[in-house]
Structure formats: structure tokens, C-alpha cells
Simulated assay, not measured.
Amino acid sequence: MSVNEGLRAMAGFFVLLSVALGTWVHPAWYLFTAFVGVNLLQSAFTRWCPAMAILRRIGLREESDAGKAAE
């Protein structure tokens, strides 16, 4: 799994989790959904996201490195 795939998986998980928490616990959790969306939008323009540093630290590779490993 590459960093970009991991980032998408993490964002999807947090969106689903925050929607569930907003529905069943408290509507204020929808603010976390908005935070994830804003962070994704920001990363589309800056090509930087704090979660990417975490994913690299746990061992996920960059897109070009992941393609080489699959060959």
C-alpha cells in the first residue's frame, strides 16, 4: 500500500466514523467530518498533509516506490 492509498483509507475511515458519531452520539461530531474534508481539500493544493508523515513513519512507501516493489 502506498502513502496515497493509505491516506485515502484513513480519510474514508475518519469520515465514516465521524458521521456515525454525529448520528448516534452528538451532532458536534460533524465538525470532525468537516475538518477531514478541509484537510483533504488543503492537501490537494499543497500536496502536504500531516497524516502523510504518520503513514511514512509506519512504513508506507511513496507511489513510485510501491510500483517498483510490485514488479
Rank of each mutant, 00 (worst) to 15 (best):
Met1Thr: 15
Met1Pro: 13
Met1Leu: 15
Met1Lys: 11
Met1His: 12
Ser2Trp: 11
Ser2His: 07
Val3Lys: 05
Asn4Asp: 15
Asn4Glu: 14
Asn4Leu: 11
Glu5Asn: 14
Glu5Lys: 14
Glu5Val: 12
Glu5His: 07
Glu5Leu: 15
Gly6Trp: 09
Gly6Pro: 00
Gly6Phe: 01
Leu7Gln: 00
Arg8Trp: 13
Arg8Ile: 15
Ala9Pro: 04
Ala9Ser: 08
Met10Leu: 15
Met10Val: 14
Met10His: 14
Met10Gly: 04
Ala11Gln: 10
Gly12Thr: 07
Phe13His: 15
Phe13Gly: 11
Phe13Thr: 15
Phe14Leu: 10
Val15Ala: 10
Val15Ile: 15
Leu16Ala: 13
Leu16Gly: 14
Leu16Phe: 11
Ser18His: 04
Val19Thr: 02
Ala20Gln: 02
Ala20Ile: 06
Leu21His: 05
Gly22Ser: 01
Gly22Lys: 04
Thr23Leu: 13
Thr23Pro: 01
Thr23Tyr: 14
Thr23Ile: 06
Trp24Tyr: 15
Trp24Ser: 05
Val25Tyr: 06
His26Gln: 07
Pro27Asp: 02
Pro27Ser: 12
Pro27Leu: 13
Ala28Gly: 09
Ala28Val: 11
Trp29Gly: 04
Trp29Phe: 15
Tyr30Asn: 10
Tyr30Cys: 00
Tyr30Lys: 09
Tyr30Ile: 03
Leu31Arg: 01
Leu31Ile: 04
Leu31Asp: 02
Phe32Asn: 01
Phe32Gly: 09
Phe32Leu: 02
Thr33Lys: 00
Thr33Pro: 03
Ala34Phe: 00
Ala34Ile: 02
Phe35Thr: 00
Phe35Asp: 02
Val36Thr: 10
Val36Phe: 09
Gly37Thr: 08
Val38Gln: 00
Asn39Glu: 13
Leu40Arg: 10
Leu40Lys: 02
Leu40Gln: 01
Leu40His: 08
Leu40Gly: 09
Leu41Gly: 04
Gln42Lys: 05
Gln42Gly: 03
Gln42Cys: 04
Ser43Ala: 05
Ser43Val: 02
Ala44Lys: 03
Thr46Ala: 01
Arg47Val: 06
Trp48Val: 04
Trp48His: 13
Trp48Met: 05
Pro50Ser: 02
Pro50Met: 10
Pro50Ala: 09
Ala51Lys: 11
Ala51His: 07
Ala51Thr: 12
Ala51Val: 11
Ala51Gln: 11
Ala51Glu: 12
Ala51Ser: 12
Met52Arg: 08
Ala53Ser: 08
Ala53Val: 11
Ile54Cys: 12
Ile54Ala: 15
Leu55Asp: 00
Leu55Val: 02
Leu55Gln: 04
Leu55His: 06
Arg56Ser: 04
Arg56Leu: 03
Ile58Met: 10
Ile58Thr: 07
Gly59Thr: 00
Gly59Arg: 04
Gly59Ser: 02
Leu60Met: 10
Arg61Tyr: 11
Arg61Ala: 13
Glu62Asn: 11
Glu62Phe: 13
Glu63Phe: 04
Glu63Ala: 09
Ser64Gly: 05
Asp65Tyr: 10
Asp65Glu: 15
Asp65Leu: 12
Ala66Trp: 11
Gly67Arg: 12
Gly67Gln: 12
Lys68His: 08
Glu71Asp: 14
Glu71Ile: 13
